[in-house]
Simulated scan of single mutants.
Amino acid sequence: MKKLILSTVLTAVTCSMLLVGCGNGQETGATADRDGVESIKIIAAHNQTSPDNPYQDGLMKFKEVAESKSDGAIEVEVHAGTLGTEESELVEKLKLGAADVVLVSPGFMTATGIKEVDLFALPYLFESYEHWENVVDGEVGEEIAHLVNEKSNNDFKIIGYWSAGVRHYYGKKPLESIEDLKGMTIRTQTSGVVADYWQQVGAIPTSVAWGELYQALQQNVVDSAENAYPYYIQQNHHKTPNGKFTTETAHDYTTRLLLVSGKKFDSMTDTQKEVLLAAAEASMEAERQALYAQEEEYKELALTDGAEINEIDRTPFIEIAKPIHEKAAQDMGVEELLKKINELK
């Protein structure tokens, strides 16, 4: 298990918010008496319906730490898919105040007008988990967090970077070469840099709701999809005719953003903020540990269930991705961030 380094994002957010609190004449979280934490309820949600899921592990750790450190004054209610199985629903609920902490992918943040976050969605941006951690837990992650807070007008604050695993192709046939993708429909994002990539390798990006994907694969609505082992194996996609074959393309070491409502956060006392950020850090570590362990576990389960898994030469895939990286970074105005990411390899 790789060492999970302390997130500078959380440190920066903690410091800045406690300083703001001091400016308002409030007692800082560092010196406040936790016995005096004011009661507050936090609604935390993710879009996965399975309880045996790293997202659930992470948010349950968030609940445990927040309630423990506040002696029960902070109550956390965790929703696993019950507030919405689509991330767009969760983002909307966060904006409306119907949820306080949610987990979303970069793609759904770009839909709110913060295009820079799509940098983390670029295929083949990261070459290992170690590389990914160095990026999101360091200066780049801190800069993205600042951009999100600023450009959302304080609607969103990133309080942690989670992973949804390494994404691979799975479909009705194995990929022996990049040419095998030509003309195949693939369930993935249908706009932005992700869609652009799949189009350039010859596939046809197709929109299917996550909750409807099992049926779509079963009934030949789509030829294939792409995701990480814990997620599509839990949904039994590998047991469908169009999900039986997995090719380890490893095209995305995924990033997920743990967001808190900026307005909710700013309404908290400094002690409440301190507890929430401590819970966020603990949840980040718990989610990553669960995810890393489950990747191997669910790969073995897939093989046991009769799925077929093969490897492929990724070089042609990576070569197509490189110019997409450069153009996307230029369009987003984040060329320096891309350079920093590449320097951390």
Rank of each mutant, 00 (worst) to 15 (best):
S191R: 12
K115A: 10
I5V: 14
S7K: 05
L122P: 07
A290P: 04
T11N: 14
I186C: 06
E143S: 08
G25K: 07
V260W: 00
K327H: 11
N134R: 12
S163Q: 04
W198A: 02
L103H: 03
Y298P: 01
A164H: 11
Y129V: 02
D100I: 02
T249H: 06
A44V: 01
E300S: 06
V102H: 01
W198I: 01
D331P: 11
L59W: 05
I312E: 00
M109E: 02
K115H: 14
G25F: 11
N149F: 14
H146G: 07
V140N: 01
N53Q: 07
E139V: 11
L291N: 06
L175M: 08
S191Q: 09
G192N: 06
E296R: 06
G183T: 06
E296I: 05
I204A: 06
K2I: 15
S7M: 03
A328S: 10
T246C: 07
V201F: 13
L213R: 09
P51T: 11
S283M: 03
Q289H: 09
P205E: 04
N227R: 12
A45G: 02
S128V: 02
E64W: 11
D71H: 15
L337Y: 01
D196V: 10
R34N: 12
G107V: 13
A302T: 01
K151P: 08
L18H: 12
G171P: 10
D196P: 00
Q219I: 12
I341P: 03
K239L: 13
K115G: 10
S224C: 08
V208I: 15
L59V: 05
Q234E: 13
Y231G: 03
E89H: 09
Y253F: 09
K239A: 07
M268G: 09
T188L: 02
G192I: 00
D52M: 12
D252N: 11
I324G: 05
D331E: 12
L4P: 08
I233H: 03
E116F: 03
P241T: 01
E116K: 00
A98E: 14
R288Q: 03
Y170S: 02
G243S: 00
F108C: 00
L147F: 11
K69R: 13
I312M: 08
A209Q: 13
T110Y: 05
K157C: 04
T11P: 00
N310S: 15
G84F: 06
I204G: 04
C22D: 15
E130L: 08
E335C: 08
A73K: 15
D270E: 15
E300H: 07
E336N: 10
G58C: 04
V275H: 07
